[in-house]
Design a protein around this nucleic acid. Structure first.
Lengths: 322, 322
DNA sequence: CTGAAAGCGCTTACAG
DNA sequence: CTGAAAGCGCTTACAG
């Protein structure tokens, strides 16, 4: 059916090896011969079968990107840059939304082992036995499980500290912390630590809710928080989606922002969609994406990589702080 | 290095064919033998190499999804459901953002020909010579190029008509139409036709801007429109991103919405991000995604498909209409 | 029920 | 510079 290298060889009157050589642009081919082969390829409308090619080379040139859910702006943006960077190195990217299911993570590990993809970047947060991952090129964002998974992250600790200090310097008397806690070890936990440290430094009482929040429960948790800590006049919100919920809930509960309540969130992604204008610590999504891809490609080729790459965030003033 | 079917066969003391049969769960294997093989696989920690498998089967079990840009909520949502549906049929999806570059579309066609993917769904709008696509399993959303590309779309004509009539019935005296025109034949063009027909029906003068709008030019085009058609008191906005721009520009130009200016847009996607609350014709993204995937899989297997699938939209009242 | 062999479409030493 | 052959890791008639 499809035209193969054999057909081209026969048509051009040469051996298949020769055809292969001109396809791969090796120089060791006579000018005459090359032309004959090229003509044959043209005439037969030949395209190389990359399944065969890759079987020989033992590489798929595909990486997987696992995010919690692609329809979230943060991950969508990340996916955009991951794909862009990957394509520069000749890789395609398979996208999978974990949808809070651990199976999806396991699926990908299986895909690596079955040579469907060369490696994966995990932005999800599930548990794994170390041994399962042995020899699998995997990199991650934020999460710190095990010693063998390199990851890129942002300066969670410093950025949080600065953001909270900013609110205090602008009049906050009592500041709270609300976050959606990741399931496994993650740099994200540094935010709570930074918060506690600032509270200690200023002799203030910490008011914290930092738990695993299921999708759909956000409003509830947020309302509880606001209810419980009535005298809090500044809040640091940690979590991709949480800040939007917090902002809206606070408004609907009649809080004046920022007069009665200042808000800073980690991840200013929403601004780009014009959704709101929350003062936020903005992660360098593009840079994170590009770095993580390059990290993965190095891992695939068994090159040395840093275990931890920290990128700088930006503090972006919105309308939710004084 | 990696353990192959051969190793398993040797370890179990059987032929490779037999191993293959138990991997593929064929019944024609003795109970004893099966167990021996299973044990060997376990002991050797065998995983099938799917590159080889797929070369034999001549299918990649991968489809490509080409969208203008994945970081846009509409496409992100679409991607989410495309991936979900594809995975139900055992397919992975490679994501690519065309970024307004025609090359990306050609890249994918090449990938199909080179057997890197089994087929593709195109949500982009570029030109192609018919012949290039010959034999390539491709399906599309909205666009109508050629006879050979099946597509799914929404009831553009009817929905637009109804939306415009709604505004007229609610007091609109002069209604305008602003749209971002697609590059190639697309069902999206039906919206302008519907608009013109309603105008004719009510004896109203059409005020139309429907052109190819470059990314970044939206605000300008919108401002021009509002400037030019000062007496327009209702507008139908066509285009994924345009409505948001229109809404904000109108506000910043001091228009009272909906008192002085009613707005209806095609695609209510933004609501889900809480961005705004524009009255809109909402496309059934999930259903479109699932249908388009099933269409593609049929095409891949050379089954008969409808050329055109039309899905119903919903008219969602927001705060931009009376 | 099972093994030996051919073949999927490529690449790559090995000779010449 | 070039061809014949082996091999990547699988599946699948073909015999038995």
């Amino acid at each position: 059916m499809e035209v193969t290298i054999k057909d081209v060889a026969k048509y051009a009157g040469v051996g298949v090896g020769t055809v292969s050589r001109v396809i791969n642009n090796e120089k060791a081919v006579g000018k005459e011969t090359r032309k004959k082969v090229l003509d044959a390829m043209e005439a037969l409308n030949y395209s190389r079968n990359n399944m065969a090619f890759r079987l020989r080379k033992n590489e798929t040139k595909i990486i997987a990107l696992l995010v919690p859910v692609i329809s979230h702006p943060f991950f969508a943006k990340l996916a955009y840059y991951v794909e862009d960077e990957a394509s520069r190195f000749g890789y395609s990217v398979i996208l999978v939304s974990s949808q809070q299911k651990v199976d999806k993570e396991i699926d990908i590990i299986t895909k690596i082992k079955q040579r469907e993809v060369d490696g994966a970047v995990f932005v999800t947060h599930y548990m794994h036995k170390e041994e399962e991952l042995k020899g699998c090129p995997i990199v991650s964002i934020d999460r710190t499980f095990g010693e063998r998974i390199p990851y890129v992250t942002s300066d969670n600790y410093d950025a949080t500290k600065n953001a909270i200090k900013y609110m205090i310097e602008h009049g906050a008397k009592s500041v709270g912390f609300i976050g959606s806690k990741p399931l496994v070890g993650s740099e994200v936990m540094e935010r709570e630590r930074a918060y506690r440290d600032v509270m200690a430094e200023y002799g203030m009482t910490p008011h914290i809710v930092n738990e695993i929040i299921q999708h759909g429960e956000e409003s509830l948790v947020v309302a509880d928080f606001i209810e419980k800590y009535k005298d809090v006049d500044a809040v640091f919100v940690s979590g991709y989606t949480l800040s939007q919920f917090f902002y809206e809930e606070a408004l609907s509960l009649g809080k004046k922002i920022p007069e009665e309540l200042q808000i800073v969130s980690y991840d200013g992604i929403f601004k780009q969609w014009g959704i709101s204008n929350i003062t936020s610590v903005e992660q360098p999504i593009e840079e994170m994406a590009r770095q993580v891809v390059r990290l993965l490609i190095k891992r695939i080729h068994n090159e040395e990589t840093c275990q931890r790459t920290v990128l700088k965030t930006k503090f972006i003033l919105g309308t939710t702080t004084k």
